[in-house]
Simulated assay, not measured.
Amino acid sequence: MAMAIAALRREGRRVLLNTPSPAATMAALSPAASQSQIAPLGARSISTQIVRNRMKSVKNIQKITKAMKMVAASKLRAVQTRTENSRGLWQPFTALLGDAPSVNVKKNVIVAITSDKGLCGGINSTSVKVSKALQKMTSGPEKESKYVILGEKGKVQLIRDSRKHIEMTVSELQKNPINYTQVAVLADDILKNVEYDAIRVVFNKFQSVISFRPTLATILSPEVGARS
């Protein structure tokens, strides 16, 4: 009797294992259905309309980006032209009066020229690094070196560890296109409010869109210039 019951149980297990699942039964009953048409479990379906909308959105973004590039290129050409034309003003004076970057004087003023806004590569950080190195070289027991900072970015970087050496700061210079009158007024303001024997201007000389050269120009006071 016990052997007969065990045999029936084994037979029941075989029947359960060989019974197809409901999904397989429906697929077998539907002749039009194929394995390639059945989406895998957990897969998301997306309509062609959504794909078209996304492609259209990407194309619109590309058009906007292209227009922004054209505007930026136009502004760059205008600024580049003004920069190159301005070299005809200061280069003859430098050739006539000379430049003395290694002059040894007591009162040194370092004019660091930076921008008010960022996202312009290493222009501001390079100007700040050169200014810091120059300040260390021109400082000593019998010498003093002060900063005059043009631009908000230079002010933010130098004020962290050189607050006591900052004599004057000027920002928001780039709101309007810089011209000779604006520069002359600014230079006159610096010369009247800062005591100096030598002013060392640190700026980036434009080479190309992706290249610039840190440059130093030295301006001596009339007294020091007469002695040298």
Results as ranks from 00 to 15, higher is better:
Ala6Phe: 05
Leu173His: 03
Gln62Tyr: 03
Val194Leu: 01
Ile50Leu: 10
Arg87His: 06
Thr48His: 01
Ile110Pro: 01
Lys143Gly: 03
Arg82Trp: 02
Ile61Leu: 09
Ser57Glu: 05
Arg213Gly: 05
Lys143Asp: 03
Val130Ile: 09
Arg213Tyr: 12
Ala187Asp: 05
Ser162Cys: 04
Thr25Lys: 09
Gln37Leu: 14
Ser30Lys: 10
Val130Leu: 06
Lys66Phe: 06
Leu96Glu: 13
Ser127Glu: 08
Ser57Pro: 00
Lys59Leu: 13
Ala184Leu: 12
Ala4Gln: 11
Gly42Ile: 01
Ile38Phe: 07
Met137Ser: 14
Val201His: 05
Ala28Val: 04
Leu158Met: 10
Val109Pro: 00
Gly151Cys: 07
Leu96Tyr: 06
Pro31Ala: 12
Asp188Ala: 14
Leu17Gln: 13
Met68Trp: 03
Thr218Gly: 07
Arg13Glu: 09
Leu134His: 02
Ala4Phe: 09
Arg14Tyr: 12
Ser131His: 07
Ile50Arg: 04
Gln157Lys: 07
Thr83Trp: 04
Gly225Leu: 08
Lys107Ala: 02
Gln91Tyr: 01
Tyr147Pro: 00
Arg160Phe: 05
Thr81Leu: 08
Val183Leu: 14
Ile113Arg: 04
Val156Ala: 14
Val128Asn: 11
Glu195Met: 07
Val156Pro: 00
Ala73Tyr: 02
Leu150Gly: 08
Pro20Leu: 02
Thr81Gln: 11
Val79Ile: 04
Ala95Gln: 09
Tyr147Ser: 04
Gln37Lys: 13
Ser208Tyr: 12
Glu152Ser: 12
Ile166Tyr: 02
Ser208His: 13
Asn179Pro: 09
Val224Arg: 05
Glu11Trp: 07
Val194Met: 01
Thr126Asn: 14
Gln35Ala: 12
Lys153Thr: 07
Ile50Cys: 02
Ala72Gly: 04
Ala4Asn: 12
Gln80Lys: 11
Gly12Asp: 06
Lys143His: 06
Gly42Cys: 05
Met1Gln: 09
Thr126His: 06
Arg227Thr: 11
Ile50His: 03
Glu11Ser: 14
Asp189Tyr: 11
Lys175Glu: 13
Met1Arg: 07
Val105Met: 00
Arg213Ser: 15
Arg163Trp: 03
Ser211Tyr: 11
Lys75Pro: 02
Glu84Tyr: 01
Ala32Lys: 12
Ser115Asp: 03
Ile219Tyr: 12
Met168Ile: 02
Leu16Pro: 01
Glu142Asn: 15
Val105Pro: 00
Lys205Asn: 13
Asn176Trp: 03
Ala198Val: 12
Ala226Gly: 08
Ile210Leu: 15
Ala32Trp: 10
Val105Cys: 01
Gly151Leu: 09
Thr181Met: 08
Ile159Glu: 15
Ser145Cys: 15
Arg82Asp: 12
Val109Met: 00
Lys117Ala: 13
Thr94Cys: 01
Arg200Ser: 15
Val170Thr: 04
Glu152Arg: 14
Arg77Ala: 10
Ile199Leu: 08
Ser131Phe: 05
Gln37Pro: 02
Gly154Ser: 08
Ala2Lys: 06
Lys107Asp: 06
Lys59His: 09
Tyr147Lys: 01
Asp188Gly: 14
Arg54Cys: 01
Glu152Phe: 05
Ala187Arg: 12
Ser45Val: 11
Val202Ile: 15
Lys146Ile: 07
Val71Pro: 00
Ala67Pro: 00
Gln207Ser: 15
Leu119Tyr: 08
Asn176Thr: 12
Leu186Arg: 08
Pro177Tyr: 07
Ala2Val: 05
Val58Thr: 08
